[in-house]
Design a protein around this nucleic acid. Structure first.
Length: 111
DNA sequence: CCGTTGACCATAA
DNA sequence: CTTATGGCCAACG
């Protein structure tokens, strides 16, 4: 099922707010964003929120799963595009299409 | 109002 | 390493 953008969505906008703060060249996990948005048990909905993105200025490509992989959604085209965007920011992927969270994860004082 | 369905995560076995 | 489970929201028909 596909989501449509809904400006009146409450928690989705909270996620967008957090994601917009991710610096260039860094990544954040779905669970991390949920925690930082004050909604620790909503890792799933971070992804669903991104699926409803229309033309919002949200760096969706900096959001990856907890294993350091790009989440798959239907066609591999999006994953390819996301990877390209990240590599353009200096992120290097390993041979398993994974990146080092230890190196690239966005960490803020007091998460 | 109800059932279904989605970019997920931590934990247990 | 793998599979299963509980947690939980929003859009749609």
């Amino acid at each position: 099922m596909e989501f449509r953008p809904n400006p009146s969505s409450l928690i989705f906008n909270r996620f967008y707010r957090v994601i917009r703060r991710i610096p260039r060249g860094r990544v954040a996990t779905y669970g991390q964003i949920a925690r930082m948005a004050g909604l620790p048990a909503h890792a799933r909905y971070v992804g669903y929120a991104l699926a409803t993105l229309s033309k919002k200025s949200v760096p969706w490509h900096r959001v990856i799963n907890a294993k350091g992989e790009i989440s798959k959604r239907g066609t591999p085209q999006f994953a390819f595009r996301q990877r390209a965007l990240l590599e353009k920011e200096g992120v290097v992927f390993g041979q398993n299409d994974r990146l080092s969270l230890k190196t690239y994860q966005w960490k803020i004082n007091r998460e």
